[in-house]
Simulated assay, not measured.
Amino acid sequence: MSTYGPWAVRILLDGNAECTGTAVDREWILSASHCFFEQGEPVADSRLEFRVGSLDQRTGTPVRPVKGGRRGSADADMMLVKVPPMTVTPAKLPASNAVRPGQAVRQYGWGATCEGDENACQSDVLRQSDLRVLNAADKRCAGFAAPGGTDFCAVSVSGVPAGGDSGGPVMATGPGRGDTLVGVLSGSDRSKIAGMGDVSRQLGWIRDTIRH
């Protein structure tokens, strides 16, 4: 269980827990693109709801997307969704080249707490996993990241992301860096390895979208 995460956002589809996201601005939520598609088709705005401002998804403030306010990255599994102004503390965006092999990062989400039917055991409270960034050339990263790509991968130190954590924040750790968003979770092998989009490689797209 996490005791901190003011920028963390729970994403519901048709009222059911689906993914996790991050408030990167008072009017913008960043998550994984694949959370907003079903059988290759975009999910209607009317089916989406976000819960913000609480570590317990049951008490978070409901927020709906602004119609037509979705912007997907052209080269990463990331989606920005515009919402009415939220009363939240947004995550800090990183400087360029924010992650490196060996770096400690922390993933947050309300994902599954069991194996098997992950939809049946989604957490009500925000959880965290501690991970260590691997070199993209490490064979353990196959399928999650590739050298020169827009993703990076990490190995579990304590805990591992699961279903429902997709799109959630991956934060830098260390003094003064705990609110710095360095990754957006794409997926994991449910055992040791997780892959995430590198936020520092998408800074231009994120900042341009938020400004407009």
Results as ranks from 00 to 15, higher is better:
M1H: 14
T3S: 08
T3C: 05
T3L: 11
Y4H: 06
Y4Q: 00
G5I: 02
G5S: 07
P6Q: 06
P6S: 01
W7R: 04
W7G: 07
A8G: 01
V9L: 15
R10K: 14
L12H: 03
L13V: 15
L13G: 08
D14F: 10
D14K: 08
G15T: 06
N16M: 08
N16K: 11
E18L: 05
G21V: 12
A23W: 07
V24F: 04
W28F: 12
I29H: 03
I29A: 06
I29T: 08
A32F: 00
S33F: 02
C35A: 10
F36D: 04
Q39W: 01
G40N: 04
P42T: 09
A44M: 13
S46R: 09
S46E: 13
R47N: 02
R51K: 08
V52H: 12
Q57N: 11
P65R: 15
P65T: 10
K67N: 11
G68A: 14
G69C: 07
G72Q: 12
G72V: 15
S73E: 07
A76F: 08
D77T: 10
M78P: 02
M78W: 06
V81D: 12
K82D: 08
V83G: 09
M86C: 13
T89R: 06
P90E: 05
P90M: 04
L93I: 12
A98N: 12
A98L: 15
V99E: 05
V99A: 10
G102C: 03
Q103E: 06
Y108N: 11
G109S: 09
A112S: 15
C114V: 14
E115V: 13
D117H: 11
D117M: 14
N119T: 14
A120Y: 01
Q122H: 03
D124Y: 12
V125W: 09
L126I: 02
R127W: 09
R127M: 11
D130T: 01
L134I: 00
L134Y: 06
N135C: 11
N135H: 05
N135P: 02
A136L: 00
A136W: 02
A137L: 13
D138T: 01
A142T: 13
G143V: 13
F144I: 08
F144M: 10
A145D: 00
A146L: 00
G148Q: 07
T150Y: 00
D151A: 14
F152D: 01
F152P: 09
C153P: 02
C153K: 00
S156G: 08
A162T: 13
A162W: 15
G163A: 14
G163W: 12
S166A: 05
G167L: 12
P169W: 10
V170Q: 04
V170H: 10
M171G: 08
A172Y: 04
A172H: 02
T173K: 03
G178E: 14
G178M: 05
G178I: 03
D179L: 09
L181R: 08
V182R: 05
G183W: 05
V184W: 00
L185T: 07
S186P: 07
G187P: 00
S188N: 00
S188A: 01
K192W: 15
K192A: 15
I193R: 10
I193D: 12
G195D: 05
M196C: 03
G197S: 10
R201D: 14
Q202F: 01
G204T: 14
W205G: 11
T209I: 00
T209L: 03
